[in-house]
Simulated scan of single mutants.
Amino acid sequence: MLIDNHGRPINYLRLAVTDRCNLRCFYCMPEDGLNWLSRKELMSYEEMLRACTLLVSMGIQKIRITGGEPFVRKDIMSLLTSISELNGLDELSLTTNGVLTAPHVAQLKNIGVKSVNLSLDTLDAGRFFAITRRDEFAAVMTTLDELLKHDIEVKINAVVMDGKNTQDIIPLVELTKELPVSVRFIEEMPFNGDGHIYTGLNWDYIRILDAIKDHFPEIKKMEDPAYSTAYNYHIPGHMGSVGIIAAYSRTFCGTCNRIRITPQGTLKNCLYDNGVLNVKDLIREGKSDEDIKESLLNAFNNRVKDGWEAESLVSTGIHESMATIGG
């Protein structure tokens, strides 16, 4: 088992396979997109598979594929299939916006993907267009239907944005009445990619919960799984559940078990750090497996205490887009 310098297990890798996305959500990137990475700057599938193989051999048990949007990268299913076959990996999951995902759901089921996080900030087609700047609401709902049809666990991730979609909190909660889904509300974070200054959080996890309690006073706290980033709740009579992720408040840092690798191969011990090691560079320099493992262990033994410490070490107030960080 991997243990960091604060005594926390590390068993969960979030691997971003691309920085590109087919939506333009305003809280993630500018309307005209980003300066996309060139193919040479991206990790190849072979490099990603080698990194995953090494990390699983060291104690990583769960891998989540993120982006950008994973399905905009060509032949992504070949990588997912290879990762799913790694000896020692207990769980492979992914996060997607659902636009291109529906045709692949049956194959995801076949390779053993049991859980998918679906990004969906509203159930209103007009607000979906306003938030994402793309008319793809129907495609996302088709993906939701396909995932449920194939008995894949679905977590719906909704970023709560003041003046944009707070009216969607209750309709999204109501989805859990008839559907076996977990709807998770996420505090907005300052990773917008356009350099504007983040002025603070109007809807923190406490306010989100209060809004839900006003409509569902019978809501009950559930026991949170180990290393959970969400506070989890259940409404009596509902099939699904509700979660609230304090992504900006960062109340869960004390039990953080995750690391990230960005599309360009940067290892991030924390969402809020600037990266601590480039795995792609080590591979391209011809380093041996043992040398790479040693570099990884050194990075894990120098993790910051929490997201606030990580942010304090960042020299600029301009945050990258979530698409380049890896969700």
Rank of each mutant, 00 (worst) to 15 (best):
M1C: 09
L2Q: 11
H6Y: 14
L13K: 05
A16M: 07
V17S: 10
C21V: 04
C28W: 02
N35R: 06
N35T: 06
W36T: 00
S38I: 11
R39M: 14
M43R: 01
L54F: 09
V56K: 10
G59E: 02
V72Q: 08
D75S: 12
S78L: 09
L80S: 02
A102W: 08
P103I: 12
A106S: 14
K109S: 15
K109T: 14
N110I: 13
S119Q: 06
S119P: 04
D121R: 09
A130G: 08
T132Q: 05
R134W: 01
A139W: 00
T142L: 15
L144Q: 07
L147C: 05
L147F: 05
D151W: 10
D151V: 12
E153M: 05
V154M: 03
N157I: 07
N165R: 07
N165C: 07
I170L: 11
P171E: 01
E174D: 03
R184V: 04
E187F: 08
M189P: 04
I197D: 12
T199S: 15
G200S: 09
L201T: 13
N202W: 12
I206L: 15
K213C: 06
M222G: 12
M222Y: 13
A226D: 13
Y227W: 03
P236L: 03
G237H: 04
H238Q: 03
M239L: 14
I244M: 10
C253Q: 07
C253Y: 06
T266E: 08
N269R: 02
C270N: 05
G275C: 05
S288K: 06
E290P: 13
D291S: 11
N301L: 14
V304L: 10
D306E: 13
W308N: 11
E311M: 14
E311T: 14
S315L: 15
G317E: 13
G317F: 09
H319F: 02
A323H: 00
